[in-house]
Design a protein around this nucleic acid. Structure first.
Lengths: 151, 151
DNA sequence: TATTGTTATACTCTATAACTATA
DNA sequence: TATAGTTATAGAGTATAACAATA
């Protein structure tokens, strides 16, 4: 019964294509700042939840501990994030550096511009509708997975 | 003015997270069949446009020629796609094999199931709305980029 | 000159598995 | 046992640059 199933009728495909659109635009916008879209998310999380550890970051972004680790390594190398002593002798408390805080401002400015370009074909109401539907879809799927931290 | 800019207010971020949701589900659903979501798109394109060459495939999926090439290599290895003599001595005409046609049916069945699971939190009307908004967003961005082939 | 296929190389993002130290 | 960090390895997906053959 899938004889005539079109590519354009697959929601996952449309999502991937739109994702590619965002990647293309945001990467270009952020490239001069030496940062990638996924790492911005980490920076924003740390800004909003200073002192949390790497595992918490990994859970919030739904990437593993080891993926979070890799990001933090890069962000620390670039002096955007600091690992400070955590509540344990196991965990690190993550904080933005002063430089990280200032840079994040610039990054978000550029990111917002890129987002506006990508979304320029939709009205403000449509944009909000789209955001709402995406969030609803995520919320429905992440049953019982703590949404608190998951931005 | 971005002081309070939240992660959840970034459209690109929401799109990425939903994309991850789809990847997780569709990969799991397709893994027993030894195929990945992106390659399904290639198979569907070839099914719907038999005889087109690799460059056309690359344009349609908005990946380059070399990325299309890699996919076709894999798909040909698995006997899902054939490279036949093209209109030129340069180009290959792509076709599904008999096995590829049969397999694609099964793949699309599983893909559809996975998509339904991911989208289970939205009503039918909401799903259609979401599809419409995503397509509109793409259409607006791909100004003058041939939408004909771009599924 | 432009286009097709090809190869080599690299990058982003995420994943799994296993290990260490701490709890 | 469970958790935090770490390391090594791998994979999907895409990109760029260059080249040969053909147009």
């Amino acid at each position: 019964m899938n004889e005539g199933l079109e590519l354009s009728s697959l929601l996952g495909y449309q999502v991937r294509r739109v994702h590619m659109l965002f990647l293309e635009q945001t990467r270009a916008a952020l490239e001069p700042l030496g940062i990638s879209p996924a790492k911005i998310a980490a920076l924003v999380y740390i800004r909003d939840h200073p002192g949390r550890d790497q595992s918490a970051l990994g859970r919030a972004l739904s990437i593993g501990r080891s993926s979070a680790m890799k990001m933090i390594n890069t962000l620390e190398e670039r002096n955007l994030v600091e690992r400070q002593p955590g509540r344990d002798f196991r965990s690190n408390a993550l904080h933005l550096t002063g430089h990280g805080k200032r840079q994040l401002q610039t990054m978000l400015d550029r990111l917002r511009d890129a987002e506006r370009r990508v979304g320029s074909g939709l009205s403000k109401a449509e944009m909000e509708q789209l955001m709402g539907l995406l969030k609803k879809l995520r919320r429905a799927r992440s049953t019982s997975v703590a949404m608190e931290a998951s931005a």
